[in-house]
Write a protein that binds this DNA or RNA. Structure first.
Lengths: 351, 351
DNA sequence: CTGAAAGCGCTAACAA
DNA sequence: TTGTTAGCGCTTTCAG
């Protein structure tokens, strides 16, 4: 202990460790990377040297030769650029859903020692930047969360030949792996539940019909109701927003005052719709039963708490990470098979 | 155009560009990095070669020699590890606030060509991993969002000598730069507003008193009311959660049924409290005026929409990024001066 | 103003 | 099983 006068300006390198351990760089490299072909005795010596030097591998150097980066990109793709001063409109980042996806991804990426870099694509310029970044091999793979159905990114991503996983099945058929919840089955569960409750005078607030989720939840619901012999359903579009949900609820009430149940295609819209119902003098669930979709924070924030179709967001995100890691591990296999999660109905008080 | 038979497996390197342009690697490097000492004619030739080859610099190689990574870490520090299956409790990721911070950071990082890597520290193991990662120089700087006041990370971060910026002033004095909103001033605005409304029978729902924000918002509010000659204020603690806010509201109503105003230290708690008020037959703002804090999504989701103290989250995050970039640019200057933002009162319908 | 050459720290043949 | 060696792609003196 004579050298601790100067604060360590330069991080230890392989060379340093090798010197301390009295072996070659290659040997140190082997134990660092867990090669089995190392004499146990030497291994111990090296491990000690690593500890005393506080050595941590330099990623840049390693990645330069291995062509691996041990990091993946989480790319958030939005249709258009939004000023940061409009935090609440259409910014996926400010949606709690985003954070849940991050948490799920982290849960498997972190133990694997994989870093996650966040990227945003919201206009052609940023998309091109993104692509050249990806093409240059700065990450080993990418997870894509896209907010719009006609996103060109999945196709472009495929061209890069980089391992990739999509959150949700893209509108345009793509060979890329995706993970999603069975939207149709979820809508069906809502319909079955309402029907079982004996409700017959039913309405629904749908999401945008140019988004797959918006569309499938509507048709799935309608089809299921049909099977229950209920064909006359009032519909309004709520744009997947809080305010849109409120407006749509008003419309529904106007068109069908005798409504006794409503399926709302997202908890956020339900949160907007509920007060409208209450103010119109309807008791929930007494007069009208309501079922939401997502099981997001909004569901428990509702009053009364929302019965809703749960998508296991975190689990789905974790699965995305696993599938991505798998593809990165054996690129020759090509895209992994997509996986579809089954939603569940969470009963609370609104239906 | 004879070489487009094979798909380009290997990305173009400096060498390739140099060959096409008929110059040396060094010259290409110079134009890439914007050196002024290059013959304009040559520059054009090189730029063309860059375009035709589709060259993009390899970061690993560059970073290996420059010792810069052009990336920063966003570290989210939580007191304890939460299972991913409990998405709504204490996980900062699922808080919309998190996404807003990300958006604000992105807004300045992206134009600067800086990548953002997301890291989570939620137990000693992950903290150590994080620190060795940082020490190894994998990022040029770090932004820290910490959920608990007694976080040891600021101090440890300072030891790494890495440029860093904290979201919020840490409890233990630290030389690190921080950015925060003036909590005390915000609470004062709420008090002034309620007093100006003629309310005298006032209550408040506070945040946890072991968090700086929770504490300062309470004392600031109480002190300001004192100045208005209002000393007898009922208080309850709502833990900064939706459910906690509801419970606290019930307590307040019990202790002071004649309440005509309440300041609630977070919009989320207010969202929980409002239905309690409504159910108890109180009109808002007629019978009781309520003012929240944050101006988050919850504020507009409330019914009625919440009058609240706005913290400019995105702007603050953008400022953090700017301060970080500044420190990275001139490390010799040490930590930049911290900056405190002034909150504003956003009047909606609840007060 | 430009080119030649020396590495940055690491892994991966290849020899021994 | 271990060491030697040759780069990965880039920036940066240092000559010219």
């Amino acid at each position: 202990m004579t050298a601790d006068v100067q604060p360590p300006v330069r991080p230890a390198t392989l060379e340093d460790v090798a010197a301390v351990a009295g072996v070659s760089r290659a040997t140190v490299s082997r134990v660092i990377n867990g090669a089995t072909t190392v004499d146990p005795a030497l291994r111990r010596v090296v491990e000690e040297a690593v500890a005393t030097t506080g050595y941590v591998p330099n990623r840049a150097a390693r990645s330069l030769v291995t062509r691996r980066t041990d990091s993946v990109a989480l790319v958030v793709s939005e249709r258009e650029r939004r000023p940061v001063s409009e935090p609440f409109i259409g910014r996926m980042f400010s949606d709690p859903h985003f954070g849940r996806v991050v948490a799920g991804l982290m849960d498997v990426l972190r133990p694997a020692g994989i870093q996650m870099v966040l990227m945003l694509s919201d206009d052609e310029t940023s998309r091109n930047q993104l692509l050249s970044y990806l093409r240059q091999g700065h990450v080993d793979g990418v997870v894509l969360i896209s907010s719009h159905a006609d996103d060109p990114l999945p196709a472009l991503l495929h061209d890069t030949r980089l391992p990739a996983v999509l959150a949700g099945r893209p509108r345009n058929p793509s060979p890329l792996t995706y993970v999603e919840a069975d939207q149709r089955a979820g809508a069906q569960m809502a319909a079955d539940h309402l029907a079982a409750l004996g409700r017959r005078n039913i309405g629904t607030i749908a999401g945008p019909q140019d988004m797959p989720a918006g569309q499938v939840r509507l048709t799935g619901f309608l089809d299921a109701l049909e099977q229950h012999g209920i064909g006359d359903v009032v519909t309004a579009e709520g744009g997947f927003t809080h305010a849109g949900g409120a407006a749509a609820m008003r419309q529904l009430l106007r068109e069908r005052p005798g409504l006794d149940a409503v399926f709302i295609a997202s908890d956020l819209m339900a949160q907007g719709a509920l007060p409208v119902l209450l103010r119109a003098g309807r008791d929930v669930p007494g007069d009208v039963a309501v079922v939401g979709f997502d099981d997001s924070t909004a569901a428990v924030a509702c009053d009364p708490p929302l019965t809703t179709v749960r998508q296991p967001v975190e689990e789905m995100a974790a699965e995305m990470a696993r599938l991505l890691l798998k593809q990165i591990g054996s690129p020759a296999d090509g895209p992994a098979p997509s996986v579809v999660f089954h939603p569940t109905l969470v009963r609370r008080e609104s239906a």
